[in-house]
């Protein structure tokens, strides 16, 4: 559409449109094999975030790991991953063919792990940015992620900051009393950007046995059901801080993208919606353009924070 500028920036990283994927919801290397062989070149998202990797490989949680709830999805995958070394050896070289900036998501059990992982990636030219996942709810049953504690969040970010000069994103959990305090702790620790939100703690019971359905007991809720929770978090965090915010949590339609941007997001990430249609993101870009034009908004930059008044 003539005159429309959908590009957006995360620091020095230019995105051709605002829609990226949320970690753990789109595996481009698998999709390249299953869906279409040219997906790395014709990638629908404007940046790619692979599944979070940890220092050591993780098997993940005992199944069942999934359960659908009203307009939502509960998962307890448990950070299943091959470990950062195998990721760097096997996946990173293949991801070099990707025609979109690569944001590697890392998680640790201790704050020091974040520094080690960020340091390992520091010299890799394929990596545009590092996301610190301090908010996975599926590691302990009580879901007490490191990202629930401002002090540990700040220290984990400091460790990573000292280890790399790459653009640093801290992914926030909504499972706290004051998400802005956590965002501030991340920025105090040296974060360039925060993303909000990770999944919301949840549980489902088997209708017959009345026992928890998920093998892990509880899990994280995603999908349209959590959109209002996410939208509020993005609104509060973007008003309270001077760093860009990546908004996520139930993004499914072009209207959702529009609203997350207006709430204060510089970019948005789509997660669960990719399970309805793995190539949805590409289709939403045109829809977003139309919605912006109808409202007389000509650029993504002019959309960000429009709700703040």
């Amino acid at each position: 559409m003539a005159g429309m500028d959908l590009t957006t920036r995360l620091g020095a990283i230019e995105l051709r449109h605002p829609i990226m994927n949320a970690s753990g919801t789109f595996d481009v290397l698998e999709a390249d094999a299953v869906l279409q062989p040219d997906l790395l070149a014709g990638f629908p998202f404007s940046a790619y975030v692979p599944k979070t990797v940890t220092l050591k490989p993780r098997e993940g949680n005992v199944p069942p790991r999934l359960y659908e709830t009203a307009a939502g999805l509960l998962n307890s995958i448990g950070l299943a991953n091959k470990g950062i070394e195998a990721f760097m050896e096997e996946d990173l070289p293949r991801l070099a063919a990707l025609k979109a900036p690569l944001i590697v998501s890392v998680a640790g059990e201790r704050t020091a792990d974040y520094g080690v992982c960020a340091g390992m990636l520091a010299d890799r030219s394929e990596v545009a940015a590092v996301e610190l996942n301090v908010s996975c709810p599926n590691v302990e049953l009580d879901g007490r992620a490191l990202g629930c504690d401002p002090d540990r969040t700040r220290r984990a970010t400091e460790e990573a900051r000292q280890a790399t000069s790459k653009f640093l994103i801290v992914k926030l959990t909504p499972n706290v009393t004051d998400i802005v305090a956590l965002a501030r702790a991340a920025v105090d620790g040296g974060a360039d950007c925060v993303s909000a939100i990770n999944t919301v703690h949840g549980m489902a019971l088997d209708p017959w046995t009345l026992r928890p359905v998920l093998g892990h007991g509880s899990g994280g809720l995603s999908g349209p059901a959590i959109k209002p929770v996410a939208l509020r978090a993005v609104y509060l965090v973007s008003r309270g801080l001077d760093v860009p915010v990546i908004g996520m949590g139930g993004v499914t339609t072009a209207q959702d993208v529009l609203e997350f941007m207006a709430a204060g997001a510089t970019a948005v990430a789509m997660g669960t919606a990719s399970f309805r249609d793995p190539l949805l993101a590409g289709r939403l870009v045109g829809g977003l353009e139309t919605l912006m034009k109808e409202r007389g908004i000509s650029s993504a930059a002019g959309l960000t924070g429009r709700s703040h008044g």
Partner: peptide, 16 residues
């Protein structure tokens, strides 16, 4: 098994 994506992304459908 229960599945979400069907294409290898989510790791929700695993079996031992």
């Amino acid at each position: 098994t229960h599945m979400a994506c069907g294409v290898g992304s989510c790791q929700g459908c695993v079996v031992a």
